[in-house]
Design a protein around this nucleic acid. Structure first.
Lengths: 217, 217
DNA sequence: GATAATTCTTGACGATCGTCAAGGCCGAGC
DNA sequence: GCTCGGCCTTGACGATCGTCAAGAATTATC
């Protein structure tokens, strides 16, 4: 229910309060910024370049954000929301352990191809947070979210398998993230076979998390 | 046998040819640069700051190196040489699988504490190489060297265990590197328990690489 | 000890960065 | 229709960057 609604154009209920428009602009700016950041990385993406890739001019950034860091952190949090539920379908629709692993591996490969710029930005930001303390809070929050996301997959796999994971959630995330990061670098270097080998790695690794080698290997 | 040896001061054989001095200066400069890079990261370490942390002035960099990238790449390669043999003792002196894992884990924890700046720099550079193509060759070379280093540990563990690894070398490296990277971030965030939990993770993970859960878990 | 080559310092250049203030644009409200 | 207040552009600011040229300082050579 909007307060102080305008008397004109009451077409739909609770539409377009000024605060909404403000948030919408912030979202649009953050989207442009994410595109530029994914292309140039944290250090080389200037506010002017970010604005050039949007429909606004470079001065507008300081109207919607305090400074560059405020924009970056907002971008990062906005990005988190889009990727945290990426594997929910996989978890939900799997009915066998093998099917889950297969769907998970396929989704990982899709992500590697479709969202490579976003993910190299993520690894860039995580590395920057090792130097810049002001980035750590946002980075750690995302890292925890990603760990939870991976853990939902592992837990579902455990349920389908009827066994308990041999490693805690942080370890599982660290290992799988390491594999993905390696595959991303190879993919960006033009390696084609990395797509199949990442899938193979995941197929082999998931059972290992339960101390069970995959059959026929 | 030095060519065109100076007639004066022939004290020792083939000492201090001009080229040697040149290389020595490059090494000293690269050492200073590595200190600064480890403190500030790739993006924020300027040539002036690097020179300030050395005994030279900022102009001298372009006397010994073509440009900033040339310096960085040389730094990275110099750093590689110091860390690639870090686990050789561990491999050589281990007589049981458990002893090897224990020594390896301890060495990893030592490295995490003692060389944290160097390793966050490494992760920074690897992330930058995802954007900057001119960094990739040097980064990939180091990555391969590190993979080989880890693989020597795993192979030795396999021999002591009398079994074959369940994963190829790249997978083993990716997984362990992921664990180390996670632990480094936690360590830089002031976590104290990460030291013991990294060791525990490694103790648990090494047997998993062979499809064998550690006993009593 | 004079001369030549090497090594290093200094200062400047143009470019680019984040930031901010001044002002124009434009629709809402009286 | 005029005004007023949010929204956005423009242009400038100081700072800092990589790079380089000119010359001082040091070392080597005869």
């Amino acid at each position: 229910m909007p307060t102080s609604t305008p008397t004109s154009t009451p077409t739909s209920t609770a539409r377009r309060t000024p605060a909404d428009k403000h948030d919408e602009r912030r979202r649009a700016l953050a989207d442009s910024a994410l595109r530029t950041l994914g292309e140039l990385g944290y250090a080389r993406a200037s506010l002017r370049e970010i604005a050039n890739n949007s429909e606004f001019s470079h001065g507008v950034v300081h109207y919607y954000f305090d400074d560059k860091l405020d924009l970056i952190v907002h971008c990062v949090q906005q990005y988190k929301a889009t990727c945290v539920r990426r594997y929910d379908d996989v978890v939900e629709h799997a009915s066998t352990p093998e099917g889950l692993v297969e769907a998970f591996a396929a989704k990982l490969v899709d992500t590697l191809v479709d969202e490579a710029p976003m993910h190299r930005l993520w690894y860039d930001l995580r590395a920057q947070s090792m130097f810049e303390e002001s980035l750590r809070e946002a980075v750690l929050a995302i890292d925890q979210t990603l760990e939870d996301m991976i853990w939902r997959v592992v837990r579902r796999y455990a349920d389908l398998l009827g066994r308990e994971p041999a490693v805690p959630s942080g370890t599982a995330y660290g290992m799988l993230d390491g594999l993905f990061q390696r595959a991303l670098l190879a993919h960006l270097c033009g390696s084609g076979e990395v797509l199949t080998s990442l899938a193979a790695e995941v197929r082999r690794t998931m059972p290992l998390l339960f101390g069970a080698p995959v059959a026929g290997d």
